[in-house]
């Protein structure tokens, strides 16, 4: 069957197999930041934004995104410049192996769009499905707090618009 959808503002019109999952489609299209890690929808490493909301691409049928917009981590660094979330993650030493990071960025960006001033508890709740085996989460949570503050203080980039492609 044929589906049409946007990934990071780029239109894709492709043939898919019945039952094809979004993670497979995206990786096939070259969006390799979307990771395969658990097969059981329990680790969050395949998270992408679907119309702005984080979803697990390993449990989303590609057919279901027909006519919708997907964002992967590539959407959040414009011309190579990192988003506040990405910058803070690197600066806080919150990126160890980095395998879970693209999905973490995608989910954290969605969180900060919904809630520009989250408490640490709110960060933990929102991102509880994003497993990380390296960091123990401490530095990641701090980085997201820091990114939230950066976004709030940044006059040039209104909160909620960061990362949108022009």
């Amino acid at each position: 069957m044929k589906v049409e959808f946007k990934v990071n503002d780029r239109k894709h019109s492709i043939e898919i197999e019945p039952g094809e999952l979004l993670v497979e489609t995206l990786r096939r299209l070259g969006y390799k930041s979307v990771k395969h890690a658990c097969d059981t929808a329990s680790c969050g490493a395949c998270s992408v934004q679907l119309d702005g909301n984080p979803v697990l691409s390993c449990r989303t049928f590609t057919a279901a995104v027909d006519g919708h917009e997907i964002k992967t981590v590539e959407a959040f660094s414009k011309e190579g410049e990192l988003s506040a979330v990405q910058k803070a993650l690197v600066e806080e030493g919150a990126v160890q192996c980095g395998f879970c990071i693209p999905a973490l960025v995608v989910t954290a960006e969605a969180l900060l769009n919904e809630n520009p001033n989250p408490t640490e508890e709110e960060i933990k709740t929102y991102l509880n499905g994003n497993l990380c085996r390296c960091t123990g989460y401490v530095s990641q949570n701090h980085a997201i707090m820091k990114a939230a503050e950066l976004r709030r203080n940044s006059a040039s980039v209104p909160a909620g618009n960061q990362g949108e492609l022009s």
Partner: peptide, 14 residues
């Protein structure tokens, strides 16, 4: 980290 930027951008590194 010297590889931090590539990782946080989700580059094809694995």
């Amino acid at each position: 980290k010297v590889d931090g930027y590539a990782l946080v951008k989700g580059k094809t590194v694995f």
